[in-house]
């Protein structure tokens, strides 16, 4: 065995294991990127819109963060905030899971709807928060998506929805399944009214949500690396003999299969939305400074 000092000295110059650094910094000052394991100071991470400055991985956002990163300051007005899930089937532990999600997120439901402006362009905005039971679509989320579209029709406004969901919410059984039909029918009405409908798929957009309103936009944008697919990995493995490709069900893979119009980095999303909304509505956007400017 070599003398103790050899490696200890060397380790002074070698990058220390991530856990070690995290242990040394006060709570909340730094985080470790789940993708590349590099340490990021929280201040830098938030300045970078929760995109890892080392590997570019787009970390999930809360609904509040998404709204703050997307719309003109002071333009957000939340709608339908008083809708709450019930437990119509008395499903095992649904009540406690709901209560926990409400507590963790501070939200009444995982889907948030409101009106706002992006670069001065008015729109109806809907955002899914993945922390709330995996963004799953139950009666409330389905109702809010439908109301967002109806609000767009009533006010002649374009509708932009940010999706992040594992799919339909099992705990509401068929009532959840029917939200797929409800939201698809609402999307059909929005289309008949000839109002722009833009979907921004974020990590993760799966199953019942991808197989309904998320796939019915005039334009489908996605964040880099977002997981987007029909069935979860285990179900796919059961149904398929061959091994899935490395990038299977990523935004990049879906782009190649023709399901997405464009992959847009988080920093560019407000500008891209403004440009598209301006092109589709014929309204001129204004420079509102900040992110969008």
């Amino acid at each position: 065995m070599p003398p103790d000092g050899w490696f200890r000295r060397k380790s002074k110059f070698a990058p220390a294991p991530a856990a070690q650094i995290v242990a040394q910094v006060p709570d909340g000052v730094a985080i470790k990127c789940a993708q590349c394991s590099e340490i990021i100071f929280t201040k830098d991470f938030e300045k970078n819109l929760k995109v890892c400055p080392h590997c570019g991985s787009h970390h999930r956002l809360t609904a509040a963060e998404r709204i703050a990163y997307t719309v003109d300051e002071g333009s957000w007005v939340e709608l339908f905030a008083n809708l709450r899930s019930v437990d119509p089937l008395h499903f095992k532990e649904y009540d406690s899971k709901l209560a926990k999600s409400v507590q963790v997120t501070g939200l009444g439901d995982g889907f948030v709807v409101g009106t706002a402006a992006v670069s001065g362009l008015p729109l109806v905005l809907g955002v899914s928060d993945f922390r709330f039971m995996g963004g799953s679509m139950g009666s409330v989320a389905g109702e809010k998506v439908a109301r967002a579209m109806e609000e767009g029709i009533a006010r002649r406004l374009p509708v932009v929805l940010f999706t992040a969901s594992g799919g339909a919410r099992m705990q509401e059984g068929l009532l959840s399944l029917m939200q797929m039909a409800k939201t698809s029918a609402a999307a059909a009405r929005l289309a008949e009214a000839k109002l722009p409908y833009i979907v921004v798929m974020t990590d993760a957009t799966m199953a019942g949500v991808l197989a309904s309103y998320a796939s019915l936009g005039d334009i489908h944008l996605a964040e880099p690396g977002a997981l987007i697919g029909f069935a979860g990995a285990r179900v796919v493995a059961q149904a398929t003999v061959q091994k899935p490709p490395e990038d299977y069900q990523t935004a990049e893979w879906q782009l190649g299969r023709g399901q997405i119009d464009s992959i847009v980095p988080r920093r560019d999303l407000p500008q891209t939305l403004a440009t598209l909304l301006s092109l589709l509505t014929g309204r001129a956007s204004v420079n509102t400074g900040g992110l969008n400017g």
Binding site: A187, L210, S212, S215, A239, P244, Y248, R257, Q259
Partner: peptide, 21 residues
């Protein structure tokens, strides 16, 4: 619905959504 890779490749989600739409 079919949940294999080939179905996903050809847009099984979009096909279901479009049909309901």
């Amino acid at each position: 619905a079919a949940a294999d890779i080939a179905a996903d490749e050809r847009g099984i989600s979009e096909a279901i959504a479009r049909s309901m739409f």
